[in-house]
């Protein structure tokens, strides 16, 4: 049986705000199998973003362990953790977070440049193929400011997938989009999940978005309060 892509064991995250301790996550256990299209659901402040940050290695847990693709993130050096993010994880942000001064092509190409493994021709082919897949082949020379919100998020999806990571994390990827555009983005992610077997974990509190997930993990006050299949959620 293949190793899970994500395994969180008794994870807690505590933030110190002045003299107050904020328990963002408490005793979280989570296993995500490869190829899942998992939604993390819960109200604002439930700990969705914190959990994604810990899985993505942009933050480390206060206690417990998070293993991503077999690597315990809390035991990695800063350099190795950055390399893990580059090679194993793609990120899609709520506010797109594209580099304003780069074109669409350059934004998507950026992770490949950081990796430094592909030739210029191979990079061009890979980026063009992804832009074709997300429907932005004609916008390669545009800057983010020249695109609509939906188009920007498509660029973000292409950037997250360009290095062919086994895991993509999306923090409320549709929150800044209208429902139709948001639906298209989720469809696009789902298509990539089915086509390439890439694992997607995305946070949302929108039931329509959750309905696309193969499984839903529910968070409340920093605790996992349930895990169900999408069909189960719909039935409820």
């Amino acid at each position: 049986m293949p190793e899970p892509i994500v395994e969180a064991v008794d994870v807690a995250k505590v933030y110190q705000l002045g003299k107050t301790q904020v328990h963002a996550l408490r005793h979280v256990d989570l296993v995500v199998e490869r190829g899942e299209f998992l939604s993390i659901a819960g109200p604002s402040g439930s700990g969705k973003t914190t959990l994604l940050n810990l899985i993505g290695g942009v933050d480390v847990p206060s206690s417990g362990t998070v293993r991503v693709d077999g690597e315990d993130t809390s035991k990695l050096t800063e350099r190795a953790l950055t390399r893990l993010r580059l090679d194993h994880i793609g990120f899609i942000f709520q506010t797109f977070n594209l580099v304003a001064v780069l074109t669409v092509f350059q934004n998507v190409e950026f992770p490949l440049l950081l990796q430094g493994r592909m030739s210029s021709d191979d990079r061009r082919r890979r980026v063009n193929a992804l832009l074709e897949a997300v429907g932005l082949a004609d916008h390669a020379r545009h800057r983010p400011s020249e695109l609509s919100g939906g188009q920007r998020q498509r660029v973000a999806v292409a950037r997250a997938l360009v290095a062919n990571p086994p895991l993509v994390l999306a923090d409320e990827p549709t929150a800044n989009l209208d429902s139709v555009t948001g639906g298209h983005i989720i469809d696009l992610m789902r298509e990539m999940n089915r086509r390439d077997g890439t694992t997607f974990i995305f946070s949302t509190h929108d039931p329509k978005v959750m309905s696309h997930a193969s499984a839903i993990v529910r968070l409340e006050d920093g605790r996992v309060v349930g895990r169900e299949t999408a069909q189960g959620a719909e039935a409820r």
Binding site: G56, R83, L114, A163
Partner: peptide, 16 residues
């Protein structure tokens, strides 16, 4: 700051 954070998140090393 946000841009630098994004670059760091997607895999840019501190030295870069």
């Amino acid at each position: 700051t946000r841009e630098i954070g994004t670059l760091r998140a997607i895999g840019m090393q501190r030295t870069q």
